[in-house]
Amino acid sequence: MDWVSRFRRTSDEPLEAPRTPEEVVLRLLAGNARFVCVAAPHVPAGSTVPPTAAAAPAPAAPVPKQAPFCAVLGCSDARVPSELVFEAGPNELFVVRVAGNVLGDECLGSLEYALHNFRDSLRLLLVLGHTGCGAVTAAVDAYLNPTGRNSTAFTRSLRAVVNHVLVAVRSGALSLEECWGAGVQSEPGYRDALIEISVYLNAAMTAYQLREEVRTSEESGTRTMFAVFDLATCQVIGPDLDPATDDTGKLSPAPADPDELIALGHQVAASPMVSRHLSDALRATRYSAPGPANV
């Protein structure tokens, strides 16, 4: 089965998931055996070929030096495997994945390790969010209903993830209100709009924080960017900032300062990707009104 078919199953195709831990072990080892048949079919495993007096041990197979050209900070979501999304092979991406693609100390340390050890090859740091992010959705629900049971993070570690994302959610809520007016909160699609904008702002804010932490890396030719993977279309997209277009196939540079983050929030709030969740009546008031709101 090719990689596209493995990644993108049709909605009516049954998912044959293992039902027990033992079945999981068998599935993983069978997958590794198929991988070995393609990647290293003639290399004996050193641990299974003991040396004998009659024959010298087989020479060790050469191991390639790590040389990734891009480091990706992505979400742990099982639907967004970075190597498959970019059709990248081994030793091309240095991938760090954590729920909500948040920049905790361990993630930052991993990226700094990549910067310090792969200077000759690494040229891009990419923060990759994705639509329908569970961590962002949890943070939005916590913001909208802080006392609700469904929005409660029951452990300190889970709260740490949600708290990281809440900054982007609050910024997204302010951007929606400044763009569409205070009444936007009563829109039936407000929650979906807030999730949509928060996904982009969370990725952008993380990229901004990462750029600030590793600013000196840009002097050696490494850039920091962000984007969002759309689960529906499988496209990696940047914010569509023009209400008249749908040109999103790009990566976006990390914001350079807080003012750029604020401007980005306003632009994403007015864009089709967010405004599609709002009512026709509210959209009509914005695009028909004269003055700055119609810019």
Rank of each mutant, 00 (worst) to 15 (best):
L210G: 04
N101R: 08
H277I: 03
K65N: 14
P18N: 05
V274Q: 05
G181H: 07
R283G: 04
H266G: 10
R286S: 02
R97V: 14
D12C: 02
S275I: 04
V140T: 05
G74H: 03
T155E: 09
H116Y: 13
P59R: 00
R97K: 14
T20S: 10
T216Q: 13
E177V: 13
L158N: 11
D2K: 07
R27E: 14
L210T: 07
L28M: 11
L103P: 02
V228P: 07
L166E: 10
E16R: 13
G238N: 04
G291F: 03
V102P: 02
T222S: 05
G129R: 08
V268E: 03
A60M: 09
P258M: 05
S151D: 06
P44Q: 03
L201V: 15
H42W: 14
E218P: 00
P81T: 01
M205V: 12
Q66N: 13
R19F: 01
C179V: 09
P68K: 01
T131K: 01
P18R: 05
Y143V: 08
E177M: 02
M205T: 15
L282K: 07
T152E: 15
P51V: 14
Q185I: 00
D280T: 13
D259N: 13
T248Y: 01
G74N: 02
A207G: 03
R286K: 11
S76P: 06
A33Q: 08
M225C: 12
V268S: 04
V38T: 14
C70I: 13
S151L: 08
T245V: 05
A45T: 02
S220N: 11
D246C: 14
L73Y: 00
M273Q: 13
A270Q: 07
P253A: 07
L84F: 07
F69S: 15
L210Y: 05
S217V: 15
A135V: 12
V169Q: 03
N150Y: 15
L93V: 08
T206I: 00
A153F: 10
A289F: 00
W3A: 12
T206L: 01
G148M: 09
A54P: 00
P239K: 02
I195P: 00
V102F: 01
V136R: 06
Y200L: 13
A204F: 03
E196F: 01
I195Q: 09
A53L: 15
A160G: 10
S47N: 02
A227F: 04
E16V: 12
L231S: 05
A60D: 08
A99D: 08
Q66E: 15
L210H: 03
T222K: 07
E196M: 09
A114C: 06
V95F: 02
C133D: 09
V140L: 01
